[in-house]
Amino acid sequence: MRKRHILFIGLLAALLMALLFSFHAGTEGEAPASQAAQAAAVDSSSCVYPKEYMHTHHMQVLEDWKNTAAHEGPDAVHETADGRKLQKNLSTCLACHGSNRYFCFSCHAYANAQPNCWNCHISPLETP
């Protein structure tokens, strides 16, 4: 009789261990939310620089972003003079200016400027 008891206790322990393991394997699915590179909150209530400066110097700003953004990776954040933080990305510009499909093209066509942005970036003119 005693031997049987001991056997049962052993079986129970084995069962518990198996359960524990199965639970352990089951926890894989739910992952903690990725502690993603701290994205700069898109604050685009006004432009990166004052309008007048952007009229004459937007190409320098974009050139700087183009050269530095990829290499800075998660830290590719532009801080404006009034402390707003913007992701160095053409889509940051297009978040506002994309609403007017001809925003870039009307001037560039007039000035015969042919930047190669749209070789890769999808221009507002190409979006449906």
Partner: peptide
């Protein structure tokens, strides 16, 4: 963006999505 002729490309571990807090 897309790429253009004459450049290489490969997986970027979705760095574009990570920056927006996505997986």
């Amino acid at each position: 963006p897309t790429r253009q002729r004459g450049v290489v490309e490969k997986c970027n571990f979705c760095s574009d999505r990570l920056v927006r807090g996505k997986k």
